[in-house]
Write a protein that binds this DNA or RNA. Structure first.
Lengths: 143, 143
DNA sequence: ATTTGTGCAAATCGTTTGCATCTGA
DNA sequence: TCAGATGCAAACGATTTGCACAAAT
């Protein structure tokens, strides 16, 4: 009973705290716990509600508002990437490298596709010399 | 003051009615008027609220619920394609051919990219032999 | 001490639903 | 006639917001 919840953090607390500080965020208890759930268990594609459930399930005490707060703050600081695929909810992806997704329509699950497996050619220029901020490829499969 | 609104329908009424009947839909006044707004002015990427405004502005008498109804029914019948890009609203695309999109982040506007201008290679197999229902490519630009 | 973050509950907003009434074939 | 459509208003669900309180520097 030394850390912030029932489950031991997967990441070293000091390292997590440094990561948060390095992007200008205070390593509060809630953010530490959420960051641990997000980044301490491999790549995840998670919704706010799901992360909230995860937190409750592991004994972490946070409010839903704080979960939304943390997800948006992390996204703004580049620690997460927001994926919009289903208009009823937002997914947050812990993989911030350039990559793409399979979307399983029935289950609502997302799966990463490495950038090396999708090659885009003949891409048109962005109109008016605007710069491209991101290219998303989503392969929808009926599972 | 002979047709269903202030603005003359761009499409021939009989042709529109046939198009609706051909997919098993009754050509009601509301559906005819909405179909005309949707298909009678070139390709459009429109939200439910925007179509509703359009309808009101052209003197067409429909409820918002009917607009949603029509958009979903048309989509189910293959006359429209629903595009999810922004989690706060759904877009409906009158272009049902395979193609992709530019998304202008500031204005929220969408623009078609012909399929010929995006070539995907090295596509991974869909897992578990599931079939691919659709591939969406969205190029986000900061305009 | 000051700034930043958190939690609660209420508010928002796009969308959906229930149900009574109308309409097209 | 009568299945299918429409309209209204209430319900919904994810997300956001206002504001008082707590925690971090």
């Amino acid at each position: 009973m030394s850390s912030s919840g029932n489950k031991k953090p997967v990441f070293n607390e000091a390292a997590l705290a440094d990561q948060l500080r390095s992007v200008g965020l205070r390593p509060t208890q809630q953010r530490m716990a959420l960051a641990d759930l997000l980044f301490g268990r491999g790549n995840r594609h998670i919704t706010a509600e799901a992360l909230y459930s995860d937190a409750l399930a592991t004994g972490v005490n946070v409010s839903l508002a704080t979960v939304y707060n943390a997800l948006h703050t992390f996204t703004a600081k580049g620690l997460l990437r927001e994926i919009t695929i289903d208009s009823t909810r937002s997914y947050f992806d812990t993989n911030i490298d350039e990559h793409h997704h399979f979307y399983f329509e029935k289950s609502g699950r997302l799966e990463d596709i490495d950038r090396a497996h999708v090659k885009l050619t003949r891409l048109p220029e962005a109109p008016d010399g605007l710069s491209v901020s991101r290219i998303d490829v989503v392969i929808r499969v009926d599972g």
